[in-house]
Design a protein around this nucleic acid. Structure first.
Length: 311
DNA sequence: CGCCAGGACGTTC
DNA sequence: GAACGTCATGGC
C-alpha cells in the first residue's frame, strides 16, 4: 500500500510549458483524467518519477500542489516530509527571484519581452544523472523521439512506481544501462548513441564525480563533462544548467545561435558567441537563455517591432 | 519522398 | 584549431 505526502509550494508555474514543452524535461506525462479508484477527474495533472520519488503535481490557487506516493516498506514508519519539501522546492527552483532577474535584464528588450511573454517558465533542477542521460539522447534528435526513448528506457530498465494510480518508471540506474548492453539499447531505438550510453554509464558507475560538478567552478565542471562519451559542449551545458545548478551555463543549439547572432548581433564561432552571451547576460545567463530559446523556437515574439538589444 | 532534429565524433587540412 | 562528412531513427 502507498502513503502520500502532500506539499504546497507558493510559486507560479506553467506546468504544461515547463514539464511538456520546454525541452528541458522529457519523462513527465499528463495524468489520465480518471485515476484508478478515484471518481474525481484530474485535469492539468502531471506524473513522473524523480530520483525514486513517484509524484503527481498540479497548479492550485497560484501555487503548486505536489503529491508524493510513498511505499510503506521503504519509508518505514513515516516519511521525512521536511526532506521531501526541501527536495521539491529545490526541484521546482522555488527560491530563484525571476522578477529580479527580469528587472536586471531590462536593458535587453528581447529578454524582457520573452520573460513577460512566458511568465510561468522555470528552469528546474534535475538530478544530474537524469539530465545526463536525457541530453546524451538529445543530440541530433527531436523532442518527440527523445521523450519516447526516455520513456522506453525507463519502462524497460527502470524501476516501476505508481503515481495517481498509474504506472510510472524511474530513470535506469547506471548499472542497469551497463547490464542492458549496446544490442538491447539499439533494439530500444537509441541508434548510434548506444555505446555513448553504456560507456558513460560505466564511467559513472565507476565513480565519475557527477554529484560534485555542482560545487565546481563552471569551466572545470564543463571540461570534466566533456570527458564522457556522447557529451560535447552543448550537452555539457545542458547537464550543468538543468542538472547541476550552474545557472550561468548557456547551451547554444541552432535556435540559440540564431538568437545570439540575430537579436544580439554576436559573431564568431559557436564557442565564441556562447562566451560573449555568458559575459553579457550575467551569472544567470542560462536561465535567461531558456526564455530566449523558447521565444525563438515558438515565435511568441514574432511581430514585435523592437530593435536588437541594448548591449 | 527528402529534410530535420536542443550535436558529437573522427578525419583532414 | 577550423571545416567537413558521417552517424540511427523517426517525426513531419
Amino acid at each position: 500500500m502507498l502513503k502520500t505526502a502532500v506539499y504546497r509550494l507558493d510559486m507560479s508555474v506553467n506546468l504544461r510549458l515547463v514539464l511538456m514543452d520546454s525541452g528541458q524535461l522529457f519523462h513527465w506525462r499528463v495524468a489520465d483524467d480518471l485515476a484508478a479508484g478515484d471518481e474525481s477527474p484530474r485535469p492539468d495533472s502531471y506524473i513522473a518519477v524523480v530520483e525514486n520519488r513517484a509524484v503527481m503535481v498540479r497548479a492550485v490557487d497560484g501555487g503548486l500542489e505536489i503529491t508524493e506516493y510513498i511505499s510503506e516498506v521503504e519509508s518505514g514508519d513515516k516519511p521525512d516530509t521536511a526532506k521531501g519539501r526541501a527536495f521539491w522546492s529545490r526541484y521546482f527552483d522555488a527560491t530563484r527571484d525571476y522578477g529580479a532577474l527580469r528587472d536586471s535584464c531590462a536593458r535587453f528588450p528581447r529578454v524582457r519581452e520573452a520573460m513577460e511573454a512566458l511568465p510561468g517558465l522555470r528552469v528546474l533542477n534535475q538530478p544530474p544523472w537524469e539530465a545526463l542521460i536525457a541530453f546524451i539522447l538529445s543530440a541530433n534528435n527531436n523532442v518527440a523521439r527523445i521523450r519516447r526513448l526516455v520513456n522506453d528506457l525507463g519502462r524497460e530498465l527502470g524501476k516501476r512506481y505508481e503515481a495517481a494510480g498509474q504506472a510510472v518508471y524511474s530513470f535506469p540506474e547506471p548499472l542497469a544501462i551497463v547490464g542492458a548492453g549496446e544490442a538491447r539499447l539499439r533494439a530500444l531505438g537509441v541508434g548510434y548513441r548506444a555505446p555513448y550510453l553504456t560507456d558513460t554509464a560505466r564511467l559513472v558507475a565507476e565513480g565519475f564525480p557527477l554529484e560534485e560538478l555542482a560545487a565546481m567552478p563552471y569551466d572545470r565542471a564543463h571540461a570534466r563533462l566533456l570527458q564522457l562519451p556522447g557529451v560535447g559542449p552543448k550537452v555539457a551545458d545542458c547537464v550543468l544548467l538543468f542538472g547541476c545548478g550552474h545557472a550561468s551555463a548557456t547551451p547554444v543549439d541552432v535556435w540559440m545561435e540564431r538568437v545570439l547572432r540575430g537579436w544580439f548581433s554576436l559573431s564568431g564561432s559557436k564557442a565564441q558567441i556562447k562566451r560573449q552571451a555568458m559575459a553579457l547576460l550575467g551569472d544567470q545567463a542560462g536561465v535567461v537563455q531558456q526564455y530566449l530559446f523558447h521565444a525563438a523556437r515558438t515565435g511568441v515574439l514574432d511581430g514585435r517591432t523592437d530593435e536588437l538589444t541594448g548591449g
